[in-house]
C-alpha cells in the first residue's frame, strides 16, 4: 500500500517537474546568446535552474562551473524525487548513483591515460560525495591504475576492472574498461528489474533500456566501421554491451560483418532498427541516438502509470536537457551559428 503511494508520488512529481523543463523558445533564446555570461544570466532568471544559480555572478562565471552547477541541479532533482521513495525498492533507483560512479571511474581512467590525474580534484562533483560508494577526495590523489583500484576497494568495481590492468608502460584500455563497467551496470539493472518488478512495469523498463543498449551498440559498430574500417571482429565484441540484447545475434553479426559504411547501411535496413535511421542521420549519430531515447522517454513519461518508469524517463529527459544546454554553452563559447547548434540539439518538437 505504502509502496503504491510513494510510487504515485514519485510519478506525479516527475511529471510535474517535467513541466518546468526548457521550451523550444527558451532553447532558441539560449542559442542566440553571445556569451556564457548571458547564458548563465538567462538560465538564472528564466528557468528552473535559477535555484542553483541564484548566488552566482553571471558576469564572472566560468563555463566549467556553470556545467557543474547544472549537473548539481540534475542531482538535486534526483534527490527531490527520492524524498518520496519510502518503499523498499530503493535498489532500482540506485542505478542513477551507479551511473555517476562509473562516470567518475571512467573520468579518472581518461585523466590517467592523459597523464594529468591531478586534474581530477578540480573536476569531481562534490555534491554526490555523500551518496557514492567510494571517496572521491581519495580518488583525487590516485596516480595509477592500482591506486584507483585501491580507492575502489570494498565496491564491486575492482572485480570488473581487475583483468584490465595495463602492462607497465602501456595505456589503460579505455574501451574495454568502459565496456566492462557498462556491461556490469546494465546487467545489474536488468537483474534488479527482474527481481523487483513484474508485468507492465517490467516490460516498460525493459523496453526503455533495451532500446538504449541496442542503440549504443549500433552506434559503436557504426563508429568502428567508419573510423577503423579494418577493425578485427574482436574489436566489436570488445565494445558490445551484452545485457538486454534483443536484436538477434545473426542481425548483429550482419552489422559487424559489413565491409564498409554502405554495407553497414544495407544490413541496418534489414534489421528492426531500419525505421529509426536514415543515412543522413549518421552525420550526427549521437544526436539521432539521443533523439530516439528522447522520444521513447517522453512517451513513457506521458503514458506510464508506474513510478520506476516515470522516474527513468524523467531522469533521461533531464540528462538530454543537460546535454543540450552543454552543447549550447560550447557552441556559444566557440561562436557557432545558432542554426548549427540547433542541428545537434534534441528539441521538444523534434
Amino acid at each position: 500500500m505504502l509502496d503504491n503511494f510513494s510510487g504515485n508520488a514519485i510519478m506525479t512529481k516527475a511529471k510535474a517537474m517535467y513541466g518546468s523543463h526548457l521550451t523550444v523558445s527558451q532553447y532558441r533564446e539560449l542559442m542566440n546568446k553571445r556569451s556564457v555570461s548571458e547564458i548563465a544570466a538567462y538560465l538564472r532568471s528564466e528557468t528552473q535552474y535559477g535555484d542553483v544559480l541564484k548566488e552566482v555572478n553571471p558576469g564572472s562565471i566560468h563555463r566549467g562551473q556553470l556545467e557543474n552547477l547544472l549537473r548539481e541541479s540534475r542531482f538535486l532533482q534526483y534527490r527531490e524525487l527520492m524524498r518520496y521513495n519510502t518503499a523498499a525498492k530503493t535498489d532500482y533507483y540506485h542505478y542513477f548513483i551507479a551511473e555517476i560512479e562509473i562516470e567518475q571511474i571512467l573520468r579518472m581512467i581518461r585523466l590517467l591515460n592523459m597523464g594529468t590525474p591531478e586534474q581530477y580534484v578540480l573536476q569531481y562533483p562534490r555534491f554526490v560525495e555523500r551518496y557514492i560508494s567510494f571517496r572521491m577526495d581519495r580518488m583525487a590523489k590516485a596516480k595509477s591504475f592500482d591506486d584507483m583500484l585501491n580507492v575502489l576497494e570494498g565496491t564491486l568495481y575492482p572485480r570488473q576492472l581487475a583483468g584490465l590492468r595495463p602492462k607497465p608502460g602501456e595505456l589503460i584500455d579505455y574501451t574495454r574498461c568502459e565496456t566492462a563497467l557498462y556491461n556490469y551496470y546494465y546487467a545489474e539493472i536488468e537483474a534488479t528489474v527482474r527481481r523487483c518488478f513484474h508485468g507492465g512495469t517490467r516490460n516498460q523498463l525493459n523496453e526503455m533500456f533495451q532500446v538504449h543498449v541496442e542503440l549504443i551498440n549500433i552506434r559503436n559498430i557504426y563508429r568502428l566501421k567508419k573510423y577503423f574500417p579494418g577493425a578485427a571482429p574482436d574489436m566489436f565484441q570488445k565494445s558490445f554491451v551484452s545485457a538486454w540484447r534483443r536484436v538477434p545475434s545473426s542481425d548483429m553479426e550482419r552489422l559487424t560483418d559489413a565491409g564498409d559504411e554502405a554495407a553497414f547501411f544495407a544490413a541496418l535496413n534489414q534489421s528492426r532498427y531500419a525505421k529509426y535511421f536514415e543515412p543522413k542521420d549518421f552525420e550526427f549519430i549521437e544526436s539521432r541516438v539521443k533523439n530516439i531515447r528522447y522520444q521513447s522517454a517522453k512517451r513513457h513519461l506521458h503514458f506510464t502509470g508506474a513510478a520506476p518508469v516515470a522516474f527513468t524517463a524523467y531522469m533521461t529527459l533531464c540528462e538530454i536537457e543537460l546535454g543540450n544546454i552543454v552543447s549550447i554553452i560550447e557552441g556559444v563559447r566557440y561562436n557557432v551559428a545558432p542554426a548549427e547548434i540547433q542541428k545537434i540539439l534534441i528539441l521538444p518538437n523534434d
Binding site: Q65, P125, R126, F127, D137, K141
Partner: peptide, 11 residues
C-alpha cells in the same frame, strides 16, 4: 570560493 571548491583545498 564555491563551497565545493573550499572542501577541495586540502588537496
Amino acid at each position: 570560493l564555491p563551497v565545493d571548491s573550499f572542501a577541495k583545498l586540502d588537496y
